[in-house]
Nucleic acid binder design. Structure first.
Lengths: 356, 356
DNA sequence: CATAGTATCGTAAACGTTTACGGAGCGCGT
DNA sequence: ACGCGCTCCGTAAACGTTTACGATACTATG
């Protein structure tokens, strides 16, 4: 109240302290909710901080307590994923944030440049200590990043499984279950030659997907034919290419399972060029539901899920493995396959033999 | 060489210094390329740092020199954009990074949660001093964020224009030019009633787009009819809705300009439901080129550009307005409309009156 | 030889916090 | 009167850097 006037830009906690005629230590304690401070003075401090617009300098705080209150989500804008991944990550991000924000944690995205090795990039980010914990995506089959983070004792969780040695927390879409469900449905509709698409890179989800497919076939006593597993980019072009390859086979499949729903657009196009009509001559099942898949004709059979809720789950998994928070999120299951729900469409609604 | 063994995890510059038997100050100078250090010792220091995997702690550095070497790209995953942002941000990010990495600057993405006011979110991020400079996207017509950053003296650039008071650096797609070009082309093909779509929110690009359209019409002596400006979401559904609204008009337009190419999918669908064939009965022009637009039939006339290069330009614009870098990037033009190139398709290739 | 200049390095202060530690004041029971 | 425990607060050290400043050794110059 003494030297009134406009709230000048705060320089630091020291100014705030001498404005209040309290010691700097007490101010800090008051702001951080420490117990040994009079409730009355705490109110004063909080009010003054609010009024003067004081916010603790993150660098000072991090330096002292070795914590940043920031969680990093690493994404690799690899050439393949960059074509279709934005909505995916942004939606999951929404779920993550809804949990983190409750604990005053901020989420930042760490986009690894195309031309940099993801491992080196991550190492740099870790060394900089800009984040307290990490969420990794686009997990490789064997992923050195996990071992590195484990060794560096940085808490992390993965959006996607991996076969790495370390037992890490993760949440992942249930590729296995989807492949199973798709095969079951197609077999029930009379199909025996069923093709499947998988990403070209050695990202782990492709293996899980194909493995689920393989086991489902086995269950139905259908031989596994490697020629029916097509590697292609997860894009329209990829779908086009898948159709192209399958059309070239001597013994063509009667059904196909696509790992990404957008591929159906290209797939439809290519087979129609060959006079084959999806939903009548060939059955098509897509993976995730996307708004644009709704506009396909015939409508695409695919799988629905809430990526937002997946983000929520993943955030809780991460927090449960952070020492500072695992009392809030007790040791829940730290590895979670996220279910998807079948959305029947017209693209595989016919029965192969009866033709209806 | 003395106490050999595995490179233990570095604790700090101090350990590195005593490992080399040099003073901590010299080590710091050597690492940072300061002049007054022997080239020979510098080599030794760099080698040791590399070998021991030492990387400067960012908190300590930031605290001392008030700089973080991090640039933030703020994105708002607003409900509308999240559905269609596609690869847009990730592609621009690639361009940004290719420039920033040359200066040892890292880019992080700051995703503003749905439920938080972007202004408050930004204020918090600024107060935390986690970034040196900012790139703002999805600029509003009047955008308080600009004034705030200007007042706080945080360097920034915008991906998109704004009408705010402050004269800020920006790079933006040439919505104006695109609208002009599209109108010119359609008029040349005999059209006089031309509709246009614009986003529902008060994001600035919509205004620029429609304004360019209005002026182009004026140039051709065609009256501006507000009924032909349709507000819709930039998605397939939005395109569907645009077609729906236009079909309801008594005096239907013969051509439409869509602000987002994906809208064409929904637009095509709706008009075909009404027995109207795009490219024959109605002319369609889309905005940006996207892989999936290639799969439309008839092919969509749209506009191509390199979003990566736009990112490069934007990065340079930002650096040129940062005190520490503007000697490297001299005062280039700090406001840049980014050109797009027409990609003629079949969707507007016919002449209205001759019908060919 | 004295002096000035140069190249290289060490010392210590500073950046803004948090927190361990101790001290002052007070009430209370013996 | 004394000691004890409790509440509240001030002091100062520490986190890991960078950098202004001064110190040293050496070279060149007169």
């Amino acid at each position: 109240m003494a030297h009134g006037g406009k709230p000048r830009p705060m320089k630091g906690i020291r100014q705030l302290a001498e404005h209040l005629d309290i010691s700097i230590g007490t101010v800090s304690r008051a702001l951080n909710g420490k117990p040994d401070v009079n409730e009355e003075t705490r109110k004063r401090v909080l009010a003054a901080a609010e009024q003067l617009g004081y916010v603790a300098n993150q660098s000072g705080r991090s330096l002292r307590q070795g914590t940043t209150n920031v969680i990093g989500l690493m994404i690799q804008s690899s050439r393949e994923t960059v074509e279709n991944s934005d909505n995916f990550f942004l939606t999951v991000t929404g779920g993550l944030q809804s949990v983190f924000s409750r604990h005053n944690l901020d989420l930042i995205m760490l986009p690894c440049p195309h031309d940099e090795d993801p491992y080196e990039y991550l190492k740099r980010m870790v060394a900089r200590r800009i984040v307290d914990a990490l969420i990794l995506s686009e997990t490789q089959r064997v992923d050195k990043r996990f071992d590195m983070l484990a060794k560096a004792k940085i808490p992390f969780a993965a959006l996607g499984r991996s076969l790495s040695g370390v037992q890490h927390p993760w949440a992942d879409l249930d590729f296995d279950g989807v492949a199973n469900c798709a095969v079951d449905r197609l077999v029930a509709h009379g199909h025996r030659r069923i093709a499947i698409s998988t990403p070209a890179s050695d990202i782990n989800l492709g293996f899980v997907f194909v493995e689920g497919y393989r086991r489902a076939l086995e269950r139905h006593g259908i031989p596994y034919d490697p020629a029916l597993v097509i590697r292609a980019k997860s894009s329209e072009q990829g779908g086009y290419q898948v159709a192209d390859e399958l059309l070239g086979l001597k013994d063509r499949p009667t059904a196909v399972i696509l790992i990404y729903e957008l591929m159906a657009i290209g797939f439809y196009r290519r087979v129609m060029e060959a006079g084959i009509i999806p939903g009548r001559d060939v059955a098509v099942v897509g993976f995730r539901e996307a708004p644009r898949a709704k506009f396909l004709q015939p409508t695409l059979t695919c799988f629905r899920t809430s990526l937002h809720d997946l983000g929520v789950e993943l955030a809780e998994i991460l927090l449960s493995s952070m020492p500072a928070y695992n009392h809030i999120y007790p040791n829940t299951k730290r590895q979670r396959t996220w279910p998807l729900e079948l959305v029947p469409g017209e693209s595989d609604a016919f029965h192969l033999t009866t033709g209806k």
